[in-house]
Design a protein around this nucleic acid. Sequence first.
DNA 1: CTGAAAGCGCTTACAG
DNA 2: CTGAAAGCGCTTACAG
Lengths: 352, 352
Amino acid sequence: MAVRLSDVARRAGVSVKTVSNVVHGYAHVRPDTRQRVQAVLDELGYLPNLSARSLRRGRSGLVALAVPALDVPYFAELSSAVVAAAEARGWTVLVDQTDGVLEREREVAAGLRKHLIDGLLLSPMALEAADLERARTRTPLVLLGERISTGGVDHVAVDNVQAARAATAHLVDLGARRVAAIGYQSGEAAGSGVARLRARGYEWALQDAGLPVDPALTPGVPGYGRREGAATMARLLDVPDPPDAVFCFNDTLALGALRAIADRGLRVPEDVAVIGFDDIEDGRFSNPSLSTVAPDKDAIAREGVAMLADRIDGRDGRNGGNAAGDAAVPAARDLRVPFELVLRESTEGRVR
Amino acid sequence: MAVRLSDVARRAGVSVKTVSNVVHGYAHVRPDTRQRVQAVLDELGYLPNLSARSLRRGRSGLVALAVPALDVPYFAELSSAVVAAAEARGWTVLVDQTDGVLEREREVAAGLRKHLIDGLLLSPMALEAADLERARTRTPLVLLGERISTGGVDHVAVDNVQAARAATAHLVDLGARRVAAIGYQSGEAAGSGVARLRARGYEWALQDAGLPVDPALTPGVPGYGRREGAATMARLLDVPDPPDAVFCFNDTLALGALRAIADRGLRVPEDVAVIGFDDIEDGRFSNPSLSTVAPDKDAIAREGVAMLADRIDGRDGRNGGNAAGDAAVPAARDLRVPFELVLRESTEGRVR
DNA sequence: CTGAAAGCGCTTACAG
DNA sequence: CTGAAAGCGCTTACAG
């Protein structure tokens, strides 16, 4: 059915090797031969069989990206950047949705599709270091946007603690004295790295300002969507001494909070100032627009892909060429990308 | 490096065929043999080489999904649904971003990766029927969310004309008499199917109501994001006899429009009612919340994947088993999924 | 500058 | 119930 290299070779009256040389643009093909072969290639509409090529080469040109969900704005934006960065390297990205569920993340890390992909970019929610130890295979892995407290695995993320601290400090600088936080994880999920790190930054900033951490202002949330943000904010407004500012651990929580505040007829930022985290597109046009921490998502994607590329190349023995194998594998890297505080109406008020 | 079937066979003292039988759970393996082989499989951590399997079988279990951009909310939600639907069939989805650019869509349709994927789901923006005719390969293709005015290719979408008509009619029913539309495509891009179809529905509804189509109220837009929605709405508010309602061809345009209206200090829906299209998550929590047309995205994903599965199976000769080949290929299907009008604050006012 | 041939790891008739 | 062997389409030493 499909046109093979050998079909082209026969038709052009040359060997398969020569056709292959032409396909790959190798030198050492006489110009007239090249031209003739190319003509047949075009005429027959040859397309390489990528399964065969990948079997032979031991490389597929495919990398997997595993995120909790593609339709969560932050992951949608991150995925878009990853796909673009991978494409720039000639790779194709195959997507897995884990729902942030431990078991799914474990499966993915264990290499469900190990022999088809050249590497894996994983954005874990529930995964712990121990899971990774157990699941490690030889497939190169890079963790995105999460610090699991272990070395051993490449990782790129924003400095969540400092970023959260800066966001909270901004609220304090505005004069807020009852600064709530929405995003603490309750129960089992408390292990989730992002929540823990952002909580630490929040508490740190309060400490810096000599303000107490009031448990009444740090409710646990069952999820990180707009719905949970709105419900949690509504409850916070019922606290005896309600907050005058809120740091939300992500923008969707914050957008839900804005909604809940508006429902009470309160004003943002006059009655309650709100700041989020992620700088998703929605927050730029919400009403009021949302102040937020903007991690450099393009950098996360770009650097993550670059780190993966290094690992993939390294595995092929280009890391010094020593026969000892593992000996020359470079240590895991732990890269921080920059963030920026983006101040908009939800903390600065309407600019006229 | 990796464990092969033959490694397992040698270790278990059986043939490769028997190991394969165990791996696939085939019958005709003596229980004790099966058990022994399974033990070795587990011990060695065997994982099949998917490239080899796919080369041999002529199937990869991979389908490509091509959308304009993963970070556009509608496509993020659609992609999420497609990945989930594909996974339910044991397929893995590989993602392409076309930016809605004709040349990229052409490339994708022409089968950049033809021999690695079993099929393609394409959500075209710029592609015309003629492009498809030219690019058609034997790779099964299903068009998502778009009707290109040709038969010949499977297609699943909402009825854009009727949906747009219903949305516009809702505004008219509210008493609006100067109903604007944001989303007309100017220049080259005018060919884009969605814009044309939604414009048709809009005009049809006005006609139904005996209202004129005022060119001053149907400005062309250079894009479909919040930014363009805000800018276009701002200009519409400067028209001598400004609109009292707006139908936006998608929700991001509408969210931008809401923002622009608020910036003028006008009220929604009292001064200007707004309705969008897509029912993205953002609109449920925006301020005010956004009325919209909700196409059944899960159905689009599910049915699209199902249609693709039919084509893929059909190609293998299961469509009757006649030797004539093409003769039995079923005609292209053109499926409509249901939509729903979701009325929220942007047309109904705040519900107390 | 070009060719003949091995082999990547799997699946699957064909035998027995 | 199990085995020996061909072949999917490519890449790549090895010859010449």
